[in-house]
Design a binder for these strands. Structure first.
Length: 550
RNA sequence: GGGUCCGUGGCCUAGUUUGGAUAAGGCACCGUCCUUCUAAGUCGGUGAUCGGGGGUUCAAAUCCCCCCGGGCCCGCCA
């Protein structure tokens, strides 16, 4: 959890014992520019006691050392915090523990499962939203104070990967097992599945061997998956996405967990021939075992979740909206039928679609993430080449690389996961306005200021409204982290970064830092330094790096 | 067909959970500012029946109902 001085608590406390007790949650952060906090009092404003209540309340509030203003305006009580209090709150935290807001290590261990794409080909833009949201959410929860691990559940036991293995074996047995060659076999076996006798004839025997289990075969297929997985992992690393653990499905085929799952479900399991399923309250049959005795993905996934529940307190799964109903069933079976008492949460996101057409791995109608990164890198180089500054080749390449990575991540994470996205190159490449470079650029200017400004030991703590506005935005960082964690919305951090950047740009254009007055210079330099630390911190939550120069 | 999510200026996005002050940013377009710390920037302007219709309320982008449009799900695939 976060530890910081929340002024709302004190404001609310000022009403204790009075006719109208204000709760901290009644003290809202103003978004319309009237004040810092607002309390809505429409309901009480026309009561005969309201006048005397307000005068007592406002007097109590005004006597608090951090209050600059507290007044009634129509249906609202507008409250402002003094710049000095914001400044000292943030600075004190940074001076003592190095960051604002401070984190109190939460004992809860969290596992965020994300990506988990079938290792049957390179990752594409439709999938990458999962990885970007998942990685960002893991970083945000970690910043909040949880002990977070990320996991990728690797499907190395399903029909798709068997087709990957079988396709290569049948059609290109002599070619090297590269991602490209494996893909060729995969696509060929699916295109010829009918003439080969159908899925059951082609993959059925392999499925059977998994149940025996034929460990040599399982090892072999796992090896094939690993080849594709390594390329996916490399792509993800280019976007600063590092997954802590890759957990293989094959590890749950015969293990203790799957035995336990079936044991716990014994009373709930129903039969249809030799097949086994459970009923959900909403009338769906969820099958765990086929009539030929082989197990379905759900069985292995339940085992995997029991494994996660054994090691973690909170389980977060990042899933596409196509898995929404599946997730509901999974949670029902785990929590209500098996009795897992750990918190299980799903972060469901809508798909990224291509304009006019669908993303389909089978049809080869995809834009790979590698393509996206490469093109973003080229765009960034073009833009840099058009700038006036002098850049060495290495500097230029590094800036382009970071801008490209940040842009790809930012342009995807900034949209509410719930909202569908249509992929357009011009949006993905956006570097003006609400974009990653907009944020990065402001940071670089701040760095430049700190480099060029003569230090000052003096601090005059008279903040003007622009400085105050920036401080207020810095202070809101804590609130945004909390809201982002509570609502599982990494996009809120993106929104926060844009607001913070706008506040700094305002400060930059109105407040000259490098001035003769030692007190003013000291104060503004300190504000600039605090801003740069917060923006770097917040950008990090989205896996973005900021650059000293660009 | 049933379920579910989405629909906000020409385009993209925030605001919807918890109803309240002039619906907020960005792109594009028009104009402003480089002899003040980086112009990937700043300031200003044009532009919105908040998909449509009803309802609840003193008050609706926000809650309820119906309709329209789109995504996704409705496998003994994963």
């Amino acid at each position: 959890m976060l530890v910081f001085r929340d002024f709302r608590d004190d404001v609310a406390r000022a009403s204790n014992g009075s006719r109208l007790v204000i709760k901290p949650s009644d003290v809202e952060i103003d978004s319309k520019g009237f004040a810092d906090y607002v309390i809505r009092v429409f309901r009480y404003r026309h009561e005969d006691w309201f006048g005397s209540w307000f005068s007592a309340f406002s007097e109590a509030v005004r006597s608090l050392d951090f209050i600059e203003r507290c007044e009634l305006s129509g249906d609202y009580i507008n409250i402002s915090i003094s710049g000095k209090s914001l400044f000292s709150t943030i600075k004190q935290s940074m001076d003592t523990v190095g960051v604002f807001p401070e984190t109190f290590q939460d004992p809860d261990r969290v596992v965020v499962e994300h990506t988990s794409a079938n290792p049957t080909g390179p990752i594409h833009v439709g999938r990458i939203r999962n990885s970007i949201i998942g990685d960002s959410m893991a970083r945000i929860m970690s910043r909040y104070g949880y002990r977070v691990s990320t996991q990728y559940f690797v499907n190395d036991s399903g029909k798709q990967v068997m087709a990957l293995y079988e396709g290569h074996k049948r059609f290109f047995p002599d070619s090297e097992m590269t991602v490209d060659n494996l893909m060729k076999g995969y696509q060929k076996i699916y295109s010829e599945m009918e003439s080969l006798g159908g899925e059951d004839a082609v993959l059925g025997p392999l499925l059977k061997r998994y149940e025996i289990p034929d460990t040599a075969l399982i090892e072999e297929i796992r090896g094939v998956c690993t080849i594709v997985l390594n390329s996916i992992r490399n792509t993800l690393l280019k976007l600063n996405i590092k997954i802590d653990d890759f957990v293989f499905e094959s590890g749950f085929l015969q293990g203790e967990e799957i035995a336990r799952a079936f044991e716990m479900l014994e009373g709930s399991l129903r039969a249809e021939g030799a097949a086994r399923y459970v009923d959900t309250p909403w009338g769906k049959k969820e099958f765990l075992v086929r009539s030929d005795g082989t197990k379905l993905y759900l069985a292995r996934d339940l085992a995997y979740h029991l494994f996660k529940a054994d090691h973690f307190d909170v389980i977060v799964d990042v899933l596409g909206e196509d898995h929404k109903d599946y997730a509901k069933s999974l949670k029902y079976i785990l929590s209500d039928l098996i009795g897992v008492d750990k918190k299980i949460e799903f972060l469901i996101y809508s798909f990224i679609s291509l304009e006019g057409s669908k993303l389909s791995t089978r049809q080869g109608n995809i834009i790979t993430v590698e393509d996206l990164i490469t093109r973003a890198d080229q765009e960034a180089r073009k833009i840099i080449a058009g700038k006036q500054g002098e850049y060495s080749v290495e500097a230029m390449e590094n800036i382009a690389k970071v801008v490209a990575t940040n842009s790809v991540r930012f342009n995807i994470v900034r949209v509410n996961p719930q909202k569908p996205m249509v992929f357009r190159w011009e949006d993905a490449m956006n570097t003006d306005g609400d974009s990653a470079p907009f944020i990065m650029y402001s940071y670089s200017r701040a760095f430049s200021i700190m480099e060029k400004t003569r230090p000052s030991q003096k601090l005059s703590l008279e903040f003007d409204s622009t400085e105050k506005g920036l401080l207020w935005n810095m202070y809101l960082y804590a609130d945004f982290i909390k809201r982002s964690v509570d609502s599982k919305r990494p996009d809120l951090i993106a929104f926060y970064l844009l607001n913070l950047t706008k506040a700094f740009n305002d400060f930059y254009s109105r407040c000259q830092v490098n001035v003769d007055d030692d007190g003013v210079r000291g104060r503004r330099l300190e504000i600039t330094s605090m801003y740069s630390r917060i923006v770097r911190d917040a950008a990090g939550l989205l896996g973005m790096n900021v650059l000293d120069r660009m």
